[in-house]
């Protein structure tokens, strides 16, 4: 059977969801952001909630997320997305509001906003991309950088004496009664992406059921910041990030 006999519309099993725009993403080759964007767009499309979904993407690599997913978007100041999402959620309680935040954003400059939005139990989804580094500004140490991890501001690796400990913010978030679903996922293998999609679907369904805050950490790579090839970055993540940030559910109520 010739390839051209296979490539026919009726044989299509996987293609780009129409909710992803045709813009070429500005992310580096192999960046996890692309995978999460895709999954997010697929979930919104499959749930048929495009008209009801409003995204909030603050400063960081994903600040331009509005170029890629065809929904209404807010660009927020660094760390402040949960505050914007709080207002949007309160003013449009029937909408599906989500934030899409990196680790520097959510776990450093925006720690107050995320803790309090989750503690109020805002009926939103939080997608938290944790690659242990500031990607957009050039690979500086993040609150989540693991010990001994080299970054441009910890060139000899993160040291406790100088930089303190990496912050397991998701563990903290899971303690807050306002959250209904807290999980840590990844997107480096087909199985991981499938699980991630299930998690994001559940989170959006929770919004429909008005259950409170759903929080999904995605342990991610930043191959440019880590100075590794995309494939090596995934391997490094499995070897070094996963032991400190183990994959799995914290809470599912």
């Amino acid at each position: 059977m010739d390839v051209k006999d296979i490539i026919k519309e009726e044989n299509l099993v996987y293609g780009k969801t129409k909710l992803l725009t045709d813009n070429i993403m500005h992310y580096c080759p192999g960046c996890t952001h692309g995978v999460v964007h895709k999954v997010l767009a697929e979930v919104i499309d499959e749930m048929g909630i495009q008209e009801k979904t409003i995204g909030v993407a603050p400063v960081g690599c994903s600040v331009l997320a509005y170029n890629y997913i065809d929904i209404d978007w807010h660009e927020a100041a660094h760390g402040r997305a949960p505050a914007l999402a709080t207002a949007i959620n309160r003013l449009y309680p029937d909408k599906y509001v989500f934030t899409y935040q990196g680790d520097g954003d959510l776990a450093s400059i925006g720690t107050a906003e995320i803790i309090h939005a989750c503690n109020r139990g805002e009926n939103i989804v939080v997608i938290f991309i944790n690659n242990g580094i500031y990607g957009m500004t050039g690979g500086q140490m993040a609150p989540t950088s693991i010990l001994d991890m080299p970054t441009s501001t910890t060139p000899y690796g993160r040291k406790v004496e100088l930089n303190g400990y990496p912050l397991k913010i998701t563990d903290l978030i899971a303690q807050l009664p306002g959250t209904c679903y807290v999980t840590r996922q990844s997107g480096h293998t087909p199985a991981a992406v499938r699980k991630l999609k299930k998690a994001i679907t559940k989170a959006f369904e929770n919004v429909g059921k008005k259950k409170g805050t759903s929080f999904i950490e995605v342990v991610s790579t930043c191959n440019s910041g880590w100075k590794l090839s995309p494939v090596k970055a995934n391997e490094w993540m499995v070897e070094h990030m996963f032991p400190f940030y183990p994959i799995g559910d914290f809470k599912d109520e």
Binding site: I54, A77, A87, R90
Partner: peptide, 26 residues
Amino acid sequence: MIVLQAESEVAAINMVYGGAGCGKKV
């Protein structure tokens, strides 16, 4: 009308930013 005591002035103005962006009088 919604009234919310925010966790800080920073959060309060960013709530205003969110509310204003979706066309509400905030």
